[in-house]
Design a protein around this nucleic acid. Structure first.
Ligand SMILES: [Mn+2]
Ligand SMILES: [Mn+2]
Ligand SMILES: [Zn+2]
Ligand SMILES: [Zn+2]
Lengths: 130, 130
DNA sequence: TTGATAAAAGTAACCATTACTGATAATGGT
DNA sequence: ACCATTATCAGTAATGGTTACTTTTATCAA
């Protein structure tokens, strides 16, 4: 994997963020520094960095992928009103009933995806005063 | 909401299945009984039935929506190898650490999506003998 | 320095889904 | 039963995120 300016800037901008941008959001940011970069380059590099384990690709609800420069194992909570995604540190344990259900289905469990859904602080405030 | 033959057959075929078909999979099945039905009709009716709470629409990983005639609240386990989706009865409880993390993020929790990932029995067998 | 080639920009294609456009048919009132 | 209303239909075009292709550029080991 060669070292290119484009990939460098894409990664810098992603890890700088604590939000979880989509490819086009990141594209808009990166273009401020590299105005001639193409959207395809952003997609290609996000893909290759994901495959190399350098970043996370989040397949949350909706049509767009989200990307996360934080490689640690953590969960996310998504605001159903504005789409914002925040980190959550809870590390849920596999309960006995879950293990039994997996075994009952005859599956070999590999992972468990948990996504919390709710209203972010800003949207709670807006919803509060009807 | 009018009663149409198309909607009737779509619902019948969906509830008949214990799998979790995508729109086009269902389209192929329905076409055996209604050869002139269009894919758009399948999409439209799945959407309207979902909005009316008659069926479930599953936004699992991947690009396609899945549909579920079983309206009960239950979880799913997806085979990462062949894409098969099965039901799971486990009803996971919200742990204290999860509640704390939600509160820490300032969110009002509305729901929690859990998806189990693994290898289905058939794929376990195949993977077992390399 | 240079040759091989990974990766770039630009553009077209892909694919699930949604929207649009007349035609058809379900339904409620006469 | 007939009709008027209009939800729904079949067929087709458009949408939007993503991927693939083609030609050019630039990285880097030799
Ligand atoms: Mn994160
Ligand atoms: Mn199910
Ligand atoms: Zn919000
Ligand atoms: Zn499988």
């Amino acid at each position: 994997m060669r070292k290119t300016r484009q990939r460098e800037v894409i990664r810098e901008e992603l890890t700088k963020l604590d939000s979880h941008p989509s490819a086009d959001e990141l594209y808009r940011l990166v273009r401020k520094r590299l105005p001639r970069i193409s959207l395809g380059t952003v997609y290609r590099n996000l893909d290759v960095m994901f495959r190399e384990g350098m970043i996370q690709r989040l397949d949350v609800g909706g049509s767009q992928m989200r990307f996360d420069g934080d490689r640690s194992d953590h969960q996310h909570i998504r605001c159903v009103r504005c789409g914002r995604i925040d980190d959550m540190e809870a590390l849920p344990e596999l309960t006995k009933s879950e293990r039994d259900a997996v075994k009952g289905a005859g599956y070999r469990l590999l992972a468990r995806r948990i996504e919390f859904l709710g209203l972010c602080p800003a949207c709670v405030k807006k919803a509060g005063r009807h």
